[in-house]
Design a protein around this nucleic acid. Sequence first.
DNA 1: TAAGGTAGACAACATGGTTGTCGAAATAGT
DNA 2: ACTATTTCGACAACCATGTTGTCTACCTTA
Lengths: 156, 156
Amino acid sequence: MSSDPPGFELPLRLLLGFRVLIDRLHAELARQGHPDVRPVHGFVLQAVGRDGTTAVELGRRLGVTKQAAAKHIDALERLGYLRRAIDPDDARRKLLQLTDRGADSLARSARIFDELRAEWAQTLGSERLTALEADLRTMTGTTPFRLDAPGWFGGG
Amino acid sequence: MSSDPPGFELPLRLLLGFRVLIDRLHAELARQGHPDVRPVHGFVLQAVGRDGTTAVELGRRLGVTKQAAAKHIDALERLGYLRRAIDPDDARRKLLQLTDRGADSLARSARIFDELRAEWAQTLGSERLTALEADLRTMTGTTPFRLDAPGWFGGG
DNA sequence: TAAGGTAGACAACATGGTTGTCGAAATAGT
DNA sequence: ACTATTTCGACAACCATGTTGTCTACCTTA
């Protein structure tokens, strides 16, 4: 019988895999005209989506407070990826919408992720990759994605 | 032919898998008398190791500046997991060593990780898990582990 | 009309990482 | 030996990102 690797390697490799993919994504995004977009921005833009949303709802989707969400919104508005629009039905709300640039970065990200997945499929084989994805789906189930990494990982 | 999942699912599941394992680890560590230890602390303690090290070397191992390493050292010293000792051969250096408590948390972490891996093996099957680890090893290779998550992920 | 809840902004605070600077101590070169 | 350079650790300042608390404007409901 072969000896199993130590248990700590699994989480390490999972994190490394994430990091490798995200680093490749952003290297390619930078090449394609989006050098200022950071990993966290991609998740925020994805959470805003084509339909737009509000700061409070964005916070809920990302698992952070509305204040934290507002800071991301400020940053992405400055970078030209998001725009605040007035909600005609509720004067308290400001609808967040992707700008053309924001939508472009999202579309490019989707394409690049597909290409990266194709690379993995090439190296590992389609079946192995499909199995890997299925197994991760099994083990992570419906675990919600949260953007509270700093506080979670560090000491906050 | 079956349709492939969108490419963005892969990094998401990798991160979720990491998070699930780390969350389970720390829930169990808390139950076993280490409620104050944070995910980042585990990596720092692991980097210190049984042989001890210095602040500069610790920073190198973690991929952060010595100042950032020093802050983790301060925190873990306050929590009683690390101790600073004088190096008899070099009066500039202060050797960092695990305290008994620090060594205990490390030993428990290793055991818990092994148990979590065994759970995954139970659910997925040993062969599938071994394949998953091998595939991740293939795709991440010798990518160094870095602890610069805040700046890397966010905007720093 | 009054009461309560929601959206968004502002301020204060804590953490974590960075660069810059400094003094003390080891090492290399003359 | 003496000087110059490098290294270690500490301190301060700064920026980014999260948090809680507070406030105003506005919607909703009794």
